[in-house]
Lab assay of single mutants.
Amino acid sequence: MKVIFLKDVKGKGKKGEIKNVADGYARNFLFKQGLAIEATPANLKALE
């Protein structure tokens, strides 16, 4: 799953980066902790 990092995550990505991560890791950790959001077209446009 492609995500946009909202904060730096050690070993995974830095704020503003778009990367592929495992679906479960994204849903169960990154999204719940507020560290990333899904890289949807609307979210990508908002990032610009």
Rank of each mutant, 00 (worst) to 15 (best):
M1N: 05
K2N: 11
K2M: 15
V3W: 01
V3N: 00
F5I: 01
F5S: 00
F5L: 08
F5K: 00
F5R: 00
F5D: 00
L6W: 02
L6P: 01
L6E: 01
L6G: 01
L6K: 02
L6A: 02
K7M: 12
K7T: 12
K7N: 07
K7L: 10
D8V: 03
D8H: 09
V9E: 01
K10W: 14
K10N: 11
K10I: 13
G11K: 06
G11W: 10
K12S: 13
K12R: 14
K12H: 15
G13F: 14
K14M: 13
K14P: 01
K14E: 08
K14N: 10
K14L: 12
K15R: 12
K15N: 04
K15H: 04
K15W: 04
G16L: 06
E17A: 05
E17G: 02
E17M: 07
I18F: 03
I18Y: 03
I18V: 13
K19P: 00
K19R: 13
K19S: 08
K19T: 08
K19F: 06
N20M: 15
N20Y: 15
N20L: 15
V21D: 02
V21L: 06
V21N: 00
A22F: 10
A22W: 11
A22T: 12
G24P: 13
G24M: 13
G24E: 15
G24I: 12
Y25R: 07
Y25W: 10
Y25N: 06
Y25A: 05
A26T: 09
A26Q: 08
A26I: 10
R27G: 03
R27P: 02
R27Q: 09
R27D: 03
R27K: 12
R27H: 09
N28Y: 13
N28H: 13
N28F: 12
N28Q: 11
F29G: 03
F29P: 02
F29A: 06
L30R: 00
L30I: 02
L30E: 00
L30H: 01
L30Y: 04
F31P: 00
F31D: 01
F31R: 02
F31I: 12
K32I: 12
Q33H: 15
Q33L: 15
Q33I: 09
Q33P: 01
G34M: 09
G34K: 10
G34I: 02
A36L: 02
A36G: 04
A36I: 07
A36E: 00
I37A: 07
I37W: 06
I37P: 00
I37S: 03
E38R: 09
A39K: 02
A39M: 06
A39E: 02
T40N: 08
T40V: 04
T40E: 03
T40L: 04
T40G: 03
P41L: 13
A42K: 09
A42E: 15
A42T: 10
A42I: 09
N43Q: 07
N43H: 07
N43M: 07
N43W: 05
N43S: 08
N43T: 07
L44K: 05
L44Q: 06
L44A: 05
A46V: 11
A46K: 13
L47P: 05
L47H: 10
L47N: 08
L47E: 06
E48H: 11
E48M: 13
